[in-house]
Design a protein around this nucleic acid. Structure first.
Lengths: 115, 115
DNA sequence: CGGAATCCGGAACGATACTG
DNA sequence: CAGTATCGTTCCGGATTCCG
């Protein structure tokens, strides 16, 4: 007995819904980068460690589909594609900010090795 | 080149560290329940949908190991085992609260079907 | 009652090669 | 430059069984 239904998928908690939309390894790093200005595909690729074309493409597509970022194709030669944050995406930034701050505190209290 | 090392695992962002510690499908639901009082194993089992013994056992052990909850074995017959939140665990509650609130807002703006 | 151990399938993910 | 297609691999998590 699912608590919530959306696009034929079931979610049992609101937190699960958040993770489905902006969770995973790469979505928050992507949102974090495009929050201030538009980024090109290749910029994101270079900037995020261990991010494959497959995963970048997949995550960008989902973020666009879910309304967190916009995709703009600029018809130059070669073509330039830029990704920028939407209003909906902006609303996720305070969440990511808090998670980052909490993460830093947690790592400090766990005596993390900076490297 | 990892940015952070802890117990021979590498983390690239603080958010990733948070997810490693209290992410996954069940850890936040568990923390959310024990935040106000101690819960028994069987209570948690009944309360959380689709939670198997394997996953509950595994997640409880990790949460105890990472210091978010305490385990108390009360030597009755049959033995009673209770899990309660620690100070470190309490510090995660505002994060979960925020994620829940954001989740509800997100679901509303996405026109979720309550069910 | 409160777990631990084992087995296993499917989805997620990564590497590589290729394309408009 | 910005992806897509294909193929392997990993790994999460479910089912089952057993134990103090």
């Amino acid at each position: 007995m699912p608590q919530f239904l959306k696009d034929n998928k079931k979610y049992y908690t609101p937190v699960e819904y958040v993770f489905a939309k902006i969770g995973g390894t790469y979505k928050m790093p992507i949102l974090w980068r495009v929050k201030d200005r538009a980024w090109r595909y290749s910029e994101l690729k270079k900037s995020i460690a261990h991010l494959s074309d497959r995963m970048l493409s997949k995550n960008l597509k989902e973020l666009v589909h879910d309304g967190f970022i916009d995709k703009e194709v600029i018809p130059e030669i070669p073509v330039r594609v830029e990704y920028s944050i939407t209003k909906k995406g902006q609303e996720a930034i305070p969440i990511i900010t808090m998670l980052r701050e909490y993460g830093f505190r947690l790592m400090q209290s766990d005596g993390i090795d900076d490297k």
